[in-house]
Design a protein around this nucleic acid. Sequence first.
DNA 1: AAGAATTTTGACCAGTTGGAAAAATGTTAG
DNA 2: CTAACATTTTTCCAACTGGTCAAAATTCTT
Lengths: 235, 235
Amino acid sequence: MVPTKVKNADTSATIEADGKPVGKVGAKVRPLTRIQREKQNVILEAALEVFAVHGFRGSTIDQIADVAGMSKPNLLYYFPRKEEIHRRLISELLVTWLAPLREMDADGDPFPEIRSYIRRKLEMARDYPRESRLFANEMLQGAPHIIEMIEVDLKNLVDEKAGILLGWMDEGKLARTDPYHLIFSIWATTQHYADFDVQVRAVLGPSRGGEGRFEDAARYLEQLFLYGLTPRSKP
Amino acid sequence: MVPTKVKNADTSATIEADGKPVGKVGAKVRPLTRIQREKQNVILEAALEVFAVHGFRGSTIDQIADVAGMSKPNLLYYFPRKEEIHRRLISELLVTWLAPLREMDADGDPFPEIRSYIRRKLEMARDYPRESRLFANEMLQGAPHIIEMIEVDLKNLVDEKAGILLGWMDEGKLARTDPYHLIFSIWATTQHYADFDVQVRAVLGPSRGGEGRFEDAARYLEQLFLYGLTPRSKP
DNA sequence: AAGAATTTTGACCAGTTGGAAAAATGTTAG
DNA sequence: CTAACATTTTTCCAACTGGTCAAAATTCTT
């Protein structure tokens, strides 16, 4: 049997995260087969698991293949290079990662908006900790793979939302303060529960370190962002 | 010349971070030579640089030796294994890392105490970002090398300080809230400026991303922790 | 059911990695 | 100055790494 040099495996590298094929003009682009779709997902899932913990350089294809339950050459049939897997994960990540911030609505009132933004971010830390860690790993390394997206897309989004916050401050609905650092503090406090999960659990101990910690965190953060730590007289 | 199986290189593994030799009983323990002290520091410095960015598995001895300006075998003469370097860095780290929290004084007033704790942590993020990233890397991996220290030393320290915070709350000097999550939020917001530095700079842009960002952060965080975001009428 | 295409496997390879051994060179206390 | 020790360099190695390739096995399509 003459191996047909696996045409579709090649195309896998030309399929963007949104699924739109963008091969060279004239290149015959077959749609992905069922197996290709399934296996690619299995691989991406496994890679997320591994990359999130060990970072790009600290992770091996063997490790990923192992978690994915297939052989290394088999994995390489779907993603011809390690970098390809990582790129796919990272570019998908940024989109979902910023979705909560996108939802912050200028027409809403500041406190409900900020409150639900914090909730959503906290839910993401709870439900997608691996994505959070993958992102953190990338940041620790100086964001080599996404620096331009950070500098353009992320910056634009934050500029826009900072504008909204400033508007609220002008209307007297929100304390006048630095909107950028405000956003940073929301990111930091929420992602902390994913990225530093071990520490959080260890410090809270078995009694308070269970799933309830996210509800406790939500309550605490709500108070912090609303009133800070100054004691208030009972209403 | 018969190589004397490099006794001192062996002892380097038996010197704890505090410099107290703790070799087996009866083992002749020579004091470190000038060169040993110097080179060990050069190596640790280089290793910090590399480990902070790529994590343990993602870093190679060659890389570290390169940054340290020596050959790999030469480096291995001082630290016979890669793990040894990492262990030294990590155990020194935890001590300095927790120093600011240790200083929080029950006899002081809550706001000055919390305020200067935040300042100190922010200064550490500014002046020792590599240490912060090394720590973050370790956390992301599930703290494999320091889990017991986290579970014992760190937990005890935090328990103690949480007790102090609770005391202040009982006295009505501090808003009643969760003292553990309060401490987490200080860690998160301050370390963010070291660990996510690229992101912070990129989002702030060239105009506001300079050194002034730490002063801005300090001002913002002070307000956040004091009053939150609720607008106050002018005094 | 057969032929074509896709998927999986096993053997392999060149470069890198952590580390060992020994020889060559420096340093220093007496 | 020199013997004893400390340091550095050179050479080497086995395991691991990312990746290739052809053959075998499986799945589709008609």
